[in-house]
Design a protein around this nucleic acid. Sequence first.
DNA 1: CTGTATCCTTAAAGATACTG
DNA 2: CAGTATCTTTAAGGATACAG
Lengths: 173, 173
Amino acid sequence: MPGKTDLSKLNCSLARTLEVVGDWWTLLIIRDAFLGVRRFGDFQKSLGIAKNILATRLERLVVNDILMRGGSEKRPVYQLTERGHALLPAMVALMQWGDTWLSAERPPVLVTDEEGRPVLPLHLRSAGDEVNAETVRFHPGPGATARTRAFFDKLPLPDDSDAAPSNTAKRRR
Amino acid sequence: MPGKTDLSKLNCSLARTLEVVGDWWTLLIIRDAFLGVRRFGDFQKSLGIAKNILATRLERLVVNDILMRGGSEKRPVYQLTERGHALLPAMVALMQWGDTWLSAERPPVLVTDEEGRPVLPLHLRSAGDEVNAETVRFHPGPGATARTRAFFDKLPLPDDSDAAPSNTAKRRR
DNA sequence: CTGTATCCTTAAAGATACTG
DNA sequence: CAGTATCTTTAAGGATACAG
């Protein structure tokens, strides 16, 4: 994309994450790595990706310490690092969403533990309670800039939700 | 991108999901929607995105039933649907990964429940047990095609992991 | 087998002007 | 305010060919 916006400027963990794994291929490569794919050629065949693109992506993943290059120089193997493994919840969450909301049929792939028991749907918890997606709140965190705080200040209150205010220029600002 | 590969062909829930929310902006728009942003202009200012791009993305999100257009014709509000809300775990998982592995400083944003208690890090569970990212398994699911099954058959076993086989043409196939 | 090195295509992103 | 309509740019992606 032309002069792609630098997402890291957004001061947001999500943006930073997307900066690293947010393109079309990267997460699929990581998925393959979780599946056990290790070799350049196997990634290529599995994904049908061009070799130069794959090379770029693998290099980037290695630089970002998500994959590590092992094996011999001539026939490297790519394996997930600790940081790479830590992406599993995010990956599974995305897969589960697709399973639930996008698949007409049954899911093609199951995730299980060592004993073959299926991994359960992810739920958000806070101090022992379920978190409702409709009522979660976001707050300026300890790393919030003044700009971020200002942003939150201008946000409509949750109650405010529906029905456009429609009367003009009422909102504080 | 030129003739972007149709990820939906990969017969994978993750690929299908990325097909819908996998581009640079979409997840950030959804994040904003979770934050409480509702108006075209607010999305635009928050993200610094071009108007035509934003319009396209919003339209796509509405078509995909992740956002719904409410309010008046002239001043619509965009709100998350049930399907959109269901993306929260995936979004939080990505944010948490960024918080943990990418942020030098403290996270700029906190996610909390109604009482202000922080949302805990997501953990995978299977039948009551924690799932270890190093030992999870993927299996052909009920929706697996013959091709998918063949793919799994050729995968190296988990034990097989390190040290390249190095001796040539040994692998079954 | 695992990559570079080139060249080419195109769609995505941006800027801007304009409309209801 | 919420978009459409153009126009331009550019970098991502693909297709080879080639090298170690």
